[in-house]
């Protein structure tokens, strides 16, 4: 028997179901499309923002680098200034040390010069100062005899027998310095010596009380390790010119007065006995 064809209503129903499924599928596709479009929009937004942030970060980093470079330059400059200051302080420290050394030398020399009223001890102290503090090897102290106008050696160190014991006022370098009252310093290198020349000393320092010359200190040769005169040496020469003169003069007067006092005392004792 021939199969009876499906009724039309059934076909319509089947078609409607297919259509409905198609519609549902289309609806899903549309939703999916909407979701994707939203996602795309989101991604675009993120990309756009990231680009802006990257640019911002880059700019910020550049500013930071510039700041650090400026800071680095400023630190280098500050370091340079501090370094300069350090050098200045180091130089100042050396100057202060040197000044301290000079003052110590001058203080000790002055203190020792006025520590005695004994003429011979005063001479010994002057010799010590010239040898130990200035660094002279051959030198002498000459006193002026105002009656004969002659300078005579009263103390010396290291000098040979060929040295003259006395010099007339105004005679040669020594006599001229004593007459003028001006210190004499031989030009050139003080160590540039073949041998000691007693006619041409290195230094002549007149010993003066005010403008009155009572003697001279004469230096002929320096110690082997003494290469040149330093500032403190000139200060010491200047100090010796005045203080050594006063020390020698006062100790001489004191010795004379002591002798006179002893003579008078003996005379008085003699009178008492009678």
């Amino acid at each position: 028997m021939e199969k009876e064809p499906a009724p039309i209503s059934k076909k319509v129903e089947e078609f409607l179901q297919v259509f409905k499924k198609g519609e549902e599928f289309t609806q899903e596709l549309l939703k999916e499309n909407e979701k994707l479009r939203y996602r795309v929009a989101q991604l675009e937004e993120v990309t756009k923002f990231s680009g802006r942030e990257g640019t911002y970060k880059m700019h910020s980093m550049e500013e930071r680098i510039k700041f650090l470079e400026d800071e680095n330059r400023s630190l280098i400059e500050r370091y340079r200034v501090v370094e300069e200051e350090n050098k200045d302080f180091a130089n100042r420290y050396i100057e202060v040390e040197s000044e301290n050394n000079n003052l110590a030398n001058l203080y000790v020399a002055s203190y020792q010069l006025h520590s005695t009223l004994d003429f011979n001890e005063s001479l010994k102290i002057i010799l010590e100062i010239v040898m130990n503090l200035i660094g002279a090897e051959e030198f002498s102290i000459m006193m002026l005899d105002e009656k004969t106008n002659e300078l005579t050696i009263v103390a010396q160190e290291g000098m040979g027998p060929e040295a003259r014991a006395s010099v007339k006022l105004g005679e040669g370098t020594i006599g001229a310095a004593a007459r003028s009252g001006e210190s004499f310093y031989r030009e050139g290198d003080p160590t540039d010596l073949v041998g000691v020349d007693y006619l041409h000393p290195l230094v002549v320092i007149p010993l003066k009380i005010k403008e009155h010359v009572i003697g001279v200190i004469v230096i002929y040769k320096l110690l082997v390790q003494k290469q040149e005169f330093s500032n403190v040496d000139y200060e010491l020469f200047s100090m010796l010119a005045g203080h050594a003169a006063t020390a020698l003069f006062s100790s001489k007067l004191y010795s004379q007065s002591e002798r006179k006092l002893t003579t008078i005392q003996s005379f008085l004792d003699l009178l008492k006995e009678k």
Partner: peptide, 10 residues
């Protein structure tokens, strides 16, 4: 030398 003694002590 008293001068040197004093200077060194100083």
């Amino acid at each position: 030398s008293p001068t040197m003694r004093q200077l060194i002590s100083f």
